[in-house]
Design a protein around this nucleic acid. Structure first.
Lengths: 217, 217, 217, 217
DNA sequence: CATGAATGAGTGTTCATTCAT
DNA sequence: GATGAATGAACACTCATTCAT
């Protein structure tokens, strides 16, 4: 009765288009992001996501094997998003002084209301990464890949002479990331945090660092 | 709030000393910190803490009304600890250049293995603060109080001339905190993170910032 | 209140019929009635009802939000049942002397083995009503509604001349209810209680009361 | 080391007087009655009674082996109290028509605010009796003993000619008790219940019953 | 005798997941 | 593929009772 070939044959012409499938998957992820960023990873129940998505419990499990897999998918999405942000920052920063442009770009992201959910989600994922090896791997990649890109940008800055040569590009990248993470946290915990003065301090520090090179010469 | 020892009439000699009560309370908190920092706030069950503490479920509830109250007590403890770290840093930094000493002091804390649990715990509390108003309040105080102290130290540094006068002390304090938070996170997520090069970059940046003042004159 | 079946968009054909849902709900209530009447409200655990019903703990909570809500549903059911008993008594008593028929009807219910659970349940609910305002309201309605009906019946009896005109119909209704409650209790506490002789006394008393009217004329 | 004789010897001269012991025991029972009648038997915790009594948990267990034993002691107290009420009613009713005096006496008890706790407690005990054989025994005795006394009083009434000879004294006693129980319940559930009109109906019914004898002759 | 911190089995309830329809 | 009722192992928390002091 069960003919695996027939099943496969049927699978050739899917009843539901891939586009539909992708849309459904995204619909679920959007609902999950909404819930997770609002209530946290663990307090959010699958029922919450069911309600938020307008789908059924069964539907969620058609697209994701488990809640953990859903969290993992969202973590991967964050990772992807962060890479994008760096990439777009790099583009706009190609012409001028890399770090200054980068810092400006970061500050825009940090105050962007559209990124609020993402900031809250990231903090939830940091906490989750401490106990979930799979999430840890993804979160780390989400930090390491941007860091690699930043390192390259800093190296380019050094070659262009906008930064001193005697600094470790990777160390600078880490400093930039730490600043970004720290301010993302401060803003998530206190949305009224004044970011601009601190950004100016950071700019000034990097400018001073660049200038310091000239002094030595 | 209510001291279970304060007996109604003639609390001649307490059956159990306050010292014993305090020790028990600490015993529970220690067990909870161990579990929370290892497994996260939500995944940790009261049973886990019961086992870790060597006490009974009932005993835990003699000292804390709920799991949330326990988390709150731990958050308050973190807040207290952070204030202490700043205070001790301030003392040692009185004589010399404030910020440089501070950065050194921070870097020592960041790599201190004894502080590992605390770092992991803080990250869990950041996530929890996003959905628990009581924790948010405590976590904010844990950031704001140290920030106020840092601001004072930066102001002192400006007066002593070790920092430029044209920077916002509060903005600098926020930068220092963001750096501390960001590196605490990086180290928690990847204990092998090389901190020293980044610390040197930070030192260099602040040195350049200080030097920049002289340049202007 | 909320019909879990009412689907958001196009509830074409319910996966599970309303009949099935109602049957399940009744299955749970039957199990609960069995347990509550046997062991009492508080000593009965949800696990007891789970076992008795043959369902799972989760299933119970699909149909009832809490144990209290289940008790409330059962109390409402008792209330309904009591109203029915009065209604059916009224029908059969329309032709002849109302009160006598009523007393007979009551006595039949009091010795009916099928009503044993109901009698025990009512006593549990009386006790619960003393501390649970919601149950108090329902239990009161379960007494007040029948009382109103009885009052009407007594008034009809007075008009028909089978009862003296100088008695308060409501007072008589209360006496009848007190007798019913008191004997329900005596029988629940001692199933071997001889009811018949007492019923005859009651009949005789009401007959004498009716006769007393003629005497005065 | 352990010399039972020495222990006994010490026991001869109790450290604490019997009066003190009795007072403590009563203090506990009073607190328990307060809690049980207010909150119900099962919802009342030993801690509640501890607080209400002003004693310690340990003290309670010095005087009562268990919560059940405490309930049993209170049930026995109710039993005793009900016997007293009948006894005192009998005395005052010796001279005149027994039943009328009795009904009056009952009605006074039913509206006595001082008996409110007792009424509520009795209802709790009825419910408990359905599942606790020991309580059932005591509650039954609390009904049966007064019933025996009532039966005797009714018999005396018949001999004195104030009641018809062709009624079953025990059946009348049961009717009186049912009325008392039923009204105790109605008043407990609705303290504003108007009792007087119903009492008059009862009096009238018994008067008619007595008069009916003369009619037949 | 009195205390109250400590016990731990048991409570009502939740929730990720499954599967018959 | 979609549904949502059903599952049952946890979960946070309680409470009658004990016993070292």
């Amino acid at each position: 009765v069960l003919d695996p070939l027939r099943v496969k044959e049927q699978a050739v012409i899917p009843k539901v288009s891939q586009t539909h499938l992708d849309a459904r998957r995204q619909q679920i992820l959007d609902a999950a992001v909404e819930c997770f960023s609002r209530d946290g990873l663990h307090p959010t129940t699958m029922q919450d996501i069911v309600k938020q998505s307008g789908l059924s419990a069964g539907a969620l499990y058609t697209y994701f094997k488990s809640k953990d897999e859903m969290i993992e998918a969202i973590a991967a999405g964050r990772h992807e998003r962060e890479r994008e942000l760096i990439t777009s920052s790099r583009k706009s920063g190609d012409a001028a002084d890399g770090v200054q442009v980068l810092v400006r770009s970061f500050s825009r992201i940090l105050v962007d209301p559209a990124e609020r959910k993402g900031r809250r989600l990231s903090i939830q994922l940091w906490a989750e990464a401490l106990r979930n090896p799979q999430i840890l791997r993804t979160v780390r990649k989400g930090v390491d890949v941007p860091r690699g890109m930043l390192t390259e940008m800093v190296e380019a800055g050094i070659q262009r002479g906008t930064l001193t040569a005697d600094v470790d590009p990777d160390a600078i990248a880490r400093v930039l990331i730490a600043l970004f993470q720290g301010f993302a946290l401060q803003i998530a915990l206190a949305p009224s945090t004044p970011l601009e003065p601190s950004i100016r301090v950071v700019e000034k520090m990097f400018a001073a660092l660049a200038a310091a090179r000239g002094d030595k010469e």
